[in-house]
């Protein structure tokens, strides 16, 4: 790059996109690391929350969208309420997950995105989430057939597991909501 030449849209289109979609002032982060210090799940992340913000500022799109962190974030909002610059980091994580899904590609964490897609399928089909159906679908997708079967039996004996899907008569309306949102994404 020549001296005096401006960094153009081509070099860093990622930052303005995340800012637009999240509505957050990512520029105001000065790396105090308070978000990472208070994050209860930071230990399981591959990139710490304050580093995610830095990578966005630098326009490192691939790195951010393919990392494990965005799927480990439990949306507890501890980071955002403690941020001295009022950056809602958990909200940005939502934006990044949205972007990672729309981009396709490989996710940095295996089963969390599977859980979300099974969960949304359940709502799309039935309008409400029917826990037993959800768990059966989840097991089929993650191939973890034996996980939590003893616990499931205990819960069943205590009347906590519903055997039949709940009644819901506006399924068409819910499918329409999904159709509109899916069309919006494609368009």
């Amino acid at each position: 790059m020549k001296p005096g030449e401006e960094i153009g849209e081509r070099e860093n289109s990622f930052l303005p996109k995340v800012v637009n979609a999240s509505g957050e002032t990512i520029d105001s982060c000065y790396q105090c690391r308070k978000c990472s210090a208070g994050c209860p799940v930071a230990y399981a992340m591959d990139i710490l929350p304050h580093q995610i913000i830095r990578h966005i500022q630098y326009g490192h799109r691939e790195k951010v969208l393919s990392c494990r962190t965005i799927w480990i974030c439990a949306s507890c909002y501890t980071c955002g309420v403690r941020c001295p610059n009022k950056v809602n980091i958990a909200g940005i994580m939502d934006t990044l997950r949205n972007m990672a899904i729309n981009a396709g590609g490989k996710f940095g964490e295996k089963n969390v995105p599977v859980f979300h897609s099974v969960f949304l399928d359940a709502i799309k089909k039935g309008g409400r989430v029917y826990e037993l159906g959800l768990i059966v679908q989840l097991k089929a997708k993650t191939r973890e057939f034996l996980k939590d079967t003893a616990l499931g039996w205990k819960m069943f004996r205590r009347g906590k597991i519903r055997l039949l899907p709940p009644p819901f008569s506006s399924k068409k309306e819910i499918r329409e909501i999904f159709n509109v949102c899916e069309k919006g994404k494609r368009g």
């Binding site: 979609a21 949306s75 939502d94 934006t95 997950r97 949205n98 899904i101 995105p113 859980f115 979300h116 897609s117 969960f119 949304l120 359940a122 709502i123 309008g127 409400r128 989430v129 819901f168 008569s169 506006s170 309306e173 819910i174 909501i177 999904f178 509109v180 949102c181 919006g184 994404k185």
Partner: peptide, 25 residues
């Protein structure tokens, strides 16, 4: 009457418009 799932937590994690529409209904 005939409430639907609010979408938590998967809708807001994956599709903002969907999360608003499901809760909004």
């Amino acid at each position: 009457k005939d409430w639907n799932c609010c979408g938590a937590s998967s809708a807001h994690c994956t599709d903002k418009d969907l999360s608003i529409a499901l809760a909004g209904r």
